[in-house]
């Protein structure tokens, strides 16, 4: 085989590039601590979400100091609960599932973006800092009303935040 020197140089550079890309992603995973959504949750029957402890009543729950869990359901063409309210400077874990077709739960302008697949529970933990409002969109086509599917994530100032009680 007869490979020109310049082409060998380029082959080397291409390998360097590939290794550089894999290394940055590995740094993101280990150094910066960005976790991928995975298979840590059990599967669930999307037809009987109403009887489920977590998703029968979509809600925000406090589970520790500055730690909250959100049980959210995506259905054609709404997110529940809506709006989702959490306090500033907290760690929030979302548990999201679908009652019908494949949706996504994507917080606009942020990295919080996950697929919602019927039968699976997507989990992601994020850290929220300052008060503010974020839009939530479904970015996977889910039927004729797909473009109407939206929600709101409200990060409230510490002193204004209170969990809604189910009487």
């Amino acid at each position: 085989m007869n490979v020109h020197t310049y082409e060998k140089v380029w082959l080397g550079a291409a390998m360097v590039l590939i290794v550089f890309f894999i290394a940055s992603v590995t740094y993101g995973a280990i150094g910066a601590g960005v976790a991928m959504v995975d298979d840590s949750e059990e599967t669930i029957d999307p037809d009987t979400l109403g009887e489920d402890d977590r998703f029968g009543d979509p809600r925000v729950e406090q589970v520790g100091d500055d730690e909250y869990e959100v049980y959210a359901v995506a259905r054609t063409f709404v997110f529940q609960p809506d709006p989702i309210e959490v306090p500033e400077d907290s760690t929030v874990t979302f548990y999201i599932t679908s009652g019908d077709v494949i949706h996504s739960f994507s917080v606009v302008g942020t990295n919080a973006n996950v697929m919602v697949i019927p039968g699976e529970v997507a989990t992601m933990t994020v850290e929220v800092d300052e008060p503010g409002e974020y839009g939530i969109v479904c970015n996977e086509y889910c039927g004729p009303g797909h473009h109407d599917m939206e929600g709101l994530l409200v990060v409230q100032p510490e002193d204004e935040f209170e969990l809604e009680d189910d009487e």
Partner: peptide, 15 residues
């Protein structure tokens, strides 16, 4: 900037 693909109307009511 999070504009979704595959949507008829990437204009939203709440934000």
């Amino acid at each position: 900037d999070s504009v979704p693909r595959r949507t008829a109307e990437p204009q939203y009511r709440g934000f």
